[in-house]
Design a protein around this nucleic acid. Sequence first.
DNA 1: ATCGAATGTTTACAACTGTAAACACATGGG
DNA 2: CCCATGTGTTTACAGTTGTAAACATTCGAT
Lengths: 132, 132
Amino acid sequence: MAGEQEPMSAAEWKVMRIVWELQPCAARDVIAAAESQQGWAPSTVKTLLRRLVDKRQLKATRVGNSFLYRPARPVLKTLFRAADTLLDHTVEGTVGPLLMYMAQRGRLSTDELADLRAMFDELARQNEEQDS
Amino acid sequence: MAGEQEPMSAAEWKVMRIVWELQPCAARDVIAAAESQQGWAPSTVKTLLRRLVDKRQLKATRVGNSFLYRPARPVLKTLFRAADTLLDHTVEGTVGPLLMYMAQRGRLSTDELADLRAMFDELARQNEEQDS
DNA sequence: ATCGAATGTTTACAACTGTAAACACATGGG
DNA sequence: CCCATGTGTTTACAGTTGTAAACATTCGAT
């Protein structure tokens, strides 16, 4: 089985975000973005890239003397894993408010809102069925 | 300003969850719960309690020779902070699917579903207004 | 008054993180 | 052909985390 998902630190997430956006990309691109976004030194970014490859969150394919980096899996898959962790932290009765909060902060598009509304209708329907 | 929210590690969250449930409580209670839930040695729990007090996530008030522990702030406040972090990790277009996922895993009550649906209606309405 | 149990305090120690300099190697421009 | 520059590799080092034993202190039972 190859689905192990080694957890990432805060700094590592920031690098991953950059790679998900630019993928596939060279170290240079990540270094430039990280410099502008976080003010990190090039060495710092190199270290983080290496660690992410070690953790198998990034795939690096050699191209000449350098590498091309790309995420080992889609951003959603990784976000879902992180969401699981957040859900693990909830206690009875907090999931509703939590989702309310996130939906508000989340700046959803009209389409996304429509999808979500449809899903809630469906969930409510299922719930009723169960209840009665 | 007193609202600094020092971030917690995974193990610390687990202890906090216990304290939020049992609050206010003595070390003994937390140690018992953590032993049964995580199999941790009493020393481990003592260390984590101390660190959480240092980080001011827990308030400890002396009672005789021991302490009464209670969370420094409500669970929702802390969850919202964690949600902010998760949202920071999202990239364009992932928030919708992320919320879909969480809503499905979240085992929402009928009441929570109703509240959420109402909020989505409202958000959609606001969105339409803006669009046109 | 005394001792064992409970509770908190100190110490431990390896792994992981944040942050980066130093070093080695290749490669393209001159 | 040689060197500056761009890449990756090695080394660094303090702080945090996971995990816990050892030690000190105190309170309740005898």
